Amino acid sequence: MRQEIPAAVLALTAELSSERETHATLDSLFTYAGAPGDPPEGSKHAKALAWLRRANKESTEPLRVLGRVLEGYMDEVLDPSNRWDKERIEKRQKIVKALAEADLQYVKGGKITSAMGTPTRTLSEFIRERDLESIDQEFQRAVKNATASPREAVSAASNILESVCKVIISDENLPAPAKQDLQSVWGVVRKHLGMDPSKVEDQDLQQILSGLLSVAHGIGSLRTHASSAHGAGKTPYRLEPRHARLAIHSAHTLCLFVLESWSKRGNG
């Protein structure tokens, strides 16, 4: 199904590309992206806007053009501690947000896809590649659902963390638990990565790690008792958007810590 570049994304992309390119490199970039026609006249910003609008009108796959234009900006490795890179990260996040509002997402490699119903296989690929931005987008989608459907959002947050654990178990050939719920797979991964607070000498870190372990159990339990993954029962939880966001952000923190710990062991 043909889909045009959303207006907000079009404007942000034109702004970003005109800031980062010269006239010559802008022409090369849009030609590489398959934007139709010759370079439009005008300033760099006017040129980028006109070319993207032309892609919407004339290209058979406007989103394919968009993905290729964004590829270099979205896939480049940036350092958040660097002031210039921090500004680039902020602009990149604006594009991610604008795409999400149109139910779209950027996928590493210059692809724009639907953000609805992303298959588990794709999430598994993100995890194996340590593609933290794509995993972050999965959590952002959960945050987006928090207001309208907090139960769905809690379920999504738990599923992402559960998927991380299952990928590690699979890739490391760890013994799979009899039950495949979050509590069980988390127990295997926690043991494998050596996440034992009693073995941490620094008391402050020990407290934080203990809290993270409680987070995993809490998210799993909340999903069981209050999310859309199970029946509400006789006394349903009064789950509010703020509760859902707490679960999502907690799962996000734990997920990234687990992936960084896995990477530190030299796996993959």
Rank of each mutant, 00 (worst) to 15 (best):
F139R: 04
A148C: 00
E201H: 12
D75R: 05
T118D: 10
Q207M: 10
E240N: 10
G231D: 03
R2P: 07
P80R: 05
P6L: 05
A33F: 07
V188P: 00
V143K: 10
A35G: 06
V77A: 14
R88K: 14
E41P: 02
K179L: 12
I169N: 11
S155Q: 15
C255T: 15
K86Q: 12
R130G: 02
S170P: 00
H230K: 07
G72P: 00
H217E: 12
T147E: 15
Y106V: 07
L123Y: 08
L212A: 05
L78D: 01
V185T: 13
E129K: 06
P119L: 11
E138F: 00
L66S: 08
Y32S: 09
V96F: 10
P236I: 14
R53V: 00
P40C: 10
D27R: 14
E125S: 06
S227M: 06
L10C: 05
H230I: 04
R141G: 15
L259K: 02
A157M: 11
T13Q: 01
E4P: 07
S221E: 11
V215Q: 06
S227N: 10
P236D: 14
G268L: 13
E172I: 00
G211K: 10
A157H: 13
K111N: 11
V200N: 08
A50T: 14
A50Y: 06
E152M: 12
N145H: 12
K57F: 06
I135F: 00
L161D: 06
A232Y: 02
S184E: 11
S149R: 09
E152I: 09
E41N: 06
A232V: 10
I219H: 04
E71V: 00
A100M: 08
E138T: 00
D27G: 09
R54L: 09
G211M: 12
G194R: 03
A48Y: 06
I5P: 08
S221L: 06
D131W: 11
L209H: 00
W186I: 00
K166S: 08
A244M: 09
E76S: 15
P241V: 05
T147L: 13
T113S: 04
A148L: 06
W262K: 01
Q137T: 13
V154L: 05
L213I: 15
N173A: 14
L132N: 05
Y32C: 04
G42K: 04
V258Y: 01
G34S: 03
D103Y: 05
A142V: 05
H217S: 14
A232P: 01
E138S: 04
L254S: 01
S214A: 10
G42Y: 04
L132M: 07
F257G: 02
E71Y: 00
D171V: 02
N159H: 10
A146T: 08
D79N: 15
E90F: 01
L10T: 01
N173Y: 13
S250T: 08
L182F: 07
G72C: 00
P39K: 09
A178K: 14
